[in-house]
Design a protein around this nucleic acid. Sequence first.
DNA 1: GTCTATAAACAGATAGAC
DNA 2: GTCTATCTGTTTATAGAC
Lengths: 239, 239
Amino acid sequence: MLQTRRFTDRSALSMPTTPTKPRPARKAVVPAAEGTRRHRQIADKRAAILGAALGLFSRFGLHGTTIDQVAAAADVSKTNLFYYFANKEALYVAVLRDLLDVWLEPLRAFAADQDPHEALAGYIRSKLAFSRDRPEASRLFCLEVIQGAPLLRDELANALRALVDEKAGVIRTWVDGGRLAPVDPHHLVFALWAVTQHYADFATQVELLTGRTLADPDFFEETVANVQRIVLQGAEPRA
Amino acid sequence: MLQTRRFTDRSALSMPTTPTKPRPARKAVVPAAEGTRRHRQIADKRAAILGAALGLFSRFGLHGTTIDQVAAAADVSKTNLFYYFANKEALYVAVLRDLLDVWLEPLRAFAADQDPHEALAGYIRSKLAFSRDRPEASRLFCLEVIQGAPLLRDELANALRALVDEKAGVIRTWVDGGRLAPVDPHHLVFALWAVTQHYADFATQVELLTGRTLADPDFFEETVANVQRIVLQGAEPRA
DNA sequence: GTCTATAAACAGATAGAC
DNA sequence: GTCTATCTGTTTATAGAC
């Protein structure tokens, strides 16, 4: 049972994604270079690999995806892929990093001087659009968090927490001003995330049960309207 | 690249969980036997393995978990585990099967002769209790559906769909009777699932952002109250 | 930067003794 | 039923030529 393998440097935010399975590492790569040139080619290739990796990781998870599959999907050789990313985990982390930024974006829009109804309705629409346009991103994020967010923990605890606390303050302002019902800001944020991401993460189930997908414009609008209605007005009839 | 391996019989509802990676199979096992005896021991061992497998699969996924880990967690030898389950996938399917029954249970309670408010509020409470008491079950279900439900597809399309359609009918009755706002039954069900399962699937994020978990009775009640309020009355103040 | 081997070792599964 | 030993293909990663 004893391990004779050398340990990865596992920089910064890395934590084991599975009980105990260290894998060897290598020198840092990423040649990256000057302003403009044919180094554009490099960036493009990196992007192609990252895109292919997102598609596969989000469907099969880190361990369910092989480097061979990513290389094939990105149309590069496996060896070549390792020229751009030191190892599998580094690639996975790079994908997650890109993800978090775009995943957070809709939330940044929230501001206290907005009308609460407009702000919430708009947020629901943009998050549902995200579920429609970038379902793999939503799914990979979900996969990562389900597994305890081993690689995103720090960012969630810092960047995300700061942002959410700020927006919770905005919501609290609205509640205190009587412009929203007395709901806890955090729970409201969770509800917004949950109902909107559901259509990406559980797209399979949604399609199996309704026979439709967000790609269908009618279904998208119907979904937006229903989610807005439920979260804003509630399921009970108004008095 | 050519595959010289024999193919698994992959009984019934099996579909590849990953692009193309068939693995050899074996004779069907599961000795299982008469009414009572020391065959109780067998059932216990099976249960221990299933329990350990649920814990690991839900955290690391099918491919992120090794049979060695399951065996160790269940305190049986790897070879012995293979006596009870033909192969890794069979074990995974067995875990999922057990899961679906218990996951569906709360929904069965729904009946048209109930008061809509009572029914929905009660459903929210029982689903949140499930998220508190069996988070691994919720997470494994989520993992499976995210990945396209390769092993649950049939059951979702049949058993689940039938049940949901029936309950959608109940909700529609309430809507038509003016006892619920005019919301689409399917979207309401999705919203109920999403907001309640979120506290299990995204428990890591919830804890990172609020510092609390459903295991805390105060937080549990606070969550129940907020989710009920949002889904039933909505976030906007009543006129 | 990209490719052709090839190392290194794991993880799933099995044979066969007890 | 349970164990020891072992086989097999897969998969990550690297060395070294071009």
